[in-house]
Amino acid sequence: MPEWLRVILFIIFVLSFAGLNAAYLVWCERKGAGHIQRRIGPKEVGPFGLLQPLADGAKLMSKQLFLPKGVDPILFMVAPLMVMVPAIMSFCVIPFSETFVAREINLGLLMIFAFASVNVLGLLLGSWGSANKYALIAGARCVSQNVAYEIPMLITTITMVMVTNTMNLNEIVRSQAGWFIHWHIFRLDMSLLMPVSFLIFFVCSLAETNRAPFDMAEAESELIAGAYTEYPGMGFGVFFMGEYANIVIGCALTAILFLGGWQAPIPLNFGGFLGVLWGMSWFFLKLYALIFTVIWIRWTYPRTQFYELLNLSWKVLIPISLFNLILTALQIKIFPWL
């Protein structure tokens, strides 16, 4: 396949995936919330309410892009894109299966983190540009939250890089081949605290993507809609899509780092097209199981208080991940043959 065709195909794939995924995750979220709360959720539009997201999307798109008084027009319009675009860019390096990846970059992991940080900037600009006090509070919260959670997340990532010796996401997945006990989460021989690392990473990715119980930036019972308060129609819609795309990235990364990415739990691999499908289905299975957990968590807990969130990061997650880092380093040094 010529390189340019590959790129174009991938852009089409990622854009449609991001859009549809956001739409249908909203549906899943509403259905999931419904059943957790013992009601049905959307059911009127289409069978099982499956057309609901399309109706919602049409509604959002047909709304006037209204600029409230006092906003900074440029920041206000750019901000949603700054949340959306980096998330889409990150899809570039995600290996959906062994061969199904846009670009196998050696520093793929680093790239994702670099782009993930831009997302906060988008939220901050949006909240600052909308000239709304609630939004401003949300923006400030969002930044300090992200600063706090990036640290344990990065430390955990360093641990993972240490044990795998690479930042290439596909390589990381390849190193987990074989039975499911070869997935990193079960590799206690690599680092004793592997399951804890997994938990830390997962919690941090929740916080990074501003998901409940860390949804300080939205906090609908305190700050109306937080950073999105002033956004009309598709401005809000793009933010929303960006948020869901970010959730996907976070969960995908968790799956790749700890749950073996596209590896099947049994040592069975195919070549050619079948192999792509086989890998992709395992990857998506893991991905959506994690996303379901994210939704499940949201509908179970109350929201954390802001300083508790920082406490959790600085007093619990960072010390434990640091300890984990040292332990792993020692383990590698002392038992290099493992």
Binding site: G32, G34, H35, I36, Q37, R38, R39, I40, K43, W296, I297, W299, T300, Y301
Partner: peptide, 18 residues
């Protein structure tokens, strides 16, 4: 424990009237 409770209810029949 909290996750367990909501998880259990997820599989229970709905109580609302349509």
């Amino acid at each position: 424990i909290g996750l367990g409770i909501t998880g259990k209810y997820f599989f229970e029949p709905v109580v609302t009237l349509q």
